[in-house]
Design a protein around this nucleic acid. Structure first.
Lengths: 213, 213
DNA sequence: AGCAGAAAATGAACAGTGTTCAAGAAGAAT
DNA sequence: ATTCTTCTTGAACACTGTTCATTTTCTGCT
């Protein structure tokens, strides 16, 4: 008739996206989805195994967009002929910060979802999309010629990513009160500046003396 | 009779703590609490306004313990006569990482809870306990003599905290699969090393050229 | 066109959840 | 003793995700 099975899935995902964005993951109710999509509650379970499965589909889209945002930020700089490592890293960080700000409820929902699901499931696709992001960072770091081997490059990229992630998310968490949002950006700038300076001064990074307890 | 109102609250909080640790926030069911505490479901609502209110009480305890862990880690180093900035920061980071590892379900639950509650409520007590942690870091940084003024000291401390937080949490999230947990520690070591080197080389940190869009 | 068989959509029913509140029990004060 | 207050109780309510027998719709064949 009017809508293919695939089309209906897309539509339901779009609705789910709006619901999550409007009120977090706990706002993703089966009956609300059914009403807004003009179908019965049971029909949702013909398209998705779970509500969690639906949430996963929404998260996939989100991760895809985040990857696009990062890649297109790099493409912009490439086109403008900017090769400075600092500016590149800041552009990536800004892409991430902008993305989180643009999805103030969906992104936390994704993070919480991941933590909840990890104990049992296969993180295949998630990790795949995430390591694509990490490789963008690793490439920028490699172009910076800090004399890092393959292994340290991977770790440095992961460190930078996780750090920016921590700053942006806990910054977002703290800004609803009185704290200003641009303090987050000051932190990002400090991190990137200090990171580059530290790597330049670098030399060898010995990590033997203080082992994890 | 046997138990004071306060005592019963303590007991319920302890039970709630176990439940959350055992199965996350969604395992904190009213009827389970009532059964385990030997009271009726309704009685819970005489002790706490909400289940969320109970969760908040649990989180308060958690934050208190985290603060204690940080403070006692510093006291240990103080007693051993260690004043090296790197070792101090690593000790703090290790205290945090150890704390997260010791509360693999409660800590994520606290983070998710905070994100969910922020839109409307007063984060008074939370922020208070958190800024106590930040001041520990700030003091270590001040002792490092990097020539940072009050404002930059605060930002640097926050940056470091958020970064370690990001590394530890997303490291924890990724380790359940094949990834090894000590890669997290490599990242922390890299971060701290690079941070200190960057600050030493430091000079002025201009942040004017790349403003947040 | 008619018809059998497969596939998909339906919504009532089920087992949970947090929360409320009239009724009863217990305690305190006079 | 008796009154008044306070605390405790668990049945009841409104809501949740999920299932599945039933009905409807679509598909392929004669």
């Amino acid at each position: 008739m009017a809508l293919d099975k695939e089309e209906m899935s897309e539509r339901v995902i779009a609705i789910a996206e709006d619901l999550i964005e409007a009120g977090g993951a706990e706002n993703l109710k089966a009956r609300t989805i059914a009403t807004q999509a003009g179908i019965a509650v049971g029909s949702i379970y013909n398209l998705f195994r779970d509500i969690d499965d639906l949430h996963r589909a929404v998260n996939m889209r989100l991760l895809g967009r985040l990857g696009d945002a990062g890649a297109s930020a790099m493409a912009e700089l490439q086109e403008a002929g900017v090769t400075d490592t600092r500016q590149r890293l800041l552009a990536l960080a800004r892409a991430y910060a902008g993305f989180v700000a643009a999805h103030p409820a969906s992104w936390p929902a994704l993070l919480a979802f991941n933590r909840r699901q990890l104990p049992h499931a296969e993180p295949d696709a998630y990790e795949a999309r995430l390591s694509a992001l990490l490789q963008i960072i690793a490439r920028v770091l490699a172009d910076g010629r800090f004399g890092l081997d393959e292994s340290r490059l991977r770790i440095a990229a992961r460190t930078l990513w996780s750090s920016v992630h921590g700053i942006v998310t806990s910054g977002y968490a703290a800004n609803s009160a009185g704290r200003q949002a641009d303090e987050t950006w000051e932190q990002v700038e400090l991190l990137v500046a200090v990171f580059i300076k530290g790597l330049e001064r670098g030399g060898t990074f010995d990590h033997a003396e203080t082992a994890p307890s």
